[in-house]
């Protein structure tokens, strides 16, 4: 294992630990933490995936195999952003509903 591979593994371990701590402290739900845990597992396993990665790169016609990681990373971030946008839409709908209910309750409290 070369130095970069070791660094990536360490980074994966540290990131996985951070994610678990965030979930333990309820700063991140298990549902939302799962993709990030998956990412940390990929980071830890990355150095072991060199040969399969070379084969995938050859099959896709990519001459520089590590570029596959860049592609996978970009697609992954794209999906995470898309999911976050859906979460924002959902939260927005909830905020609207709660705002309406709060305002109506306050109005009823004030009503004679």
């Amino acid at each position: 294992m070369n130095r970069v591979a070791g660094l990536v593994t360490l980074l994966g371990l540290a990131f996985g630990w951070t994610v678990i701590q965030a979930m333990r402290r309820r700063k991140l739900s298990e549902r939302d933490g799962l993709p990030w845990l998956g990412l940390s597992v990929v980071l830890i396993a990355a150095p072991l995936l060199r040969q399969p990665l070379d084969r995938v790169a050859a099959w896709l016609g990519v001459h520089y195999a590590p570029a596959i990681w860049l592609l996978v990373g970009m697609i992954g971030l794209f999906f995470i952003c898309f999911r976050l946008t859906m979460v924002v839409t959902d939260l927005q709908a909830r905020v609207v509903r709660l705002t309406q209910e709060l305002a109506l309750m306050k109005q009823e409290d004030k009503a004679p």
Binding site: Q100, A103, L104, K106, Q107, A111
Partner: peptide, 24 residues
């Protein structure tokens, strides 16, 4: 009668508040 929304929801959110009141 006045319903005061604590922050701006836009015309859709404001009108729906009125419809909720009307339905109730």
């Amino acid at each position: 009668m006045v319903v005061e929304l604590p922050h701006n929801l836009g015309i859709g959110g404001a009108m729906q508040t009125g419809y909720r009141y009307a339905a109730r």
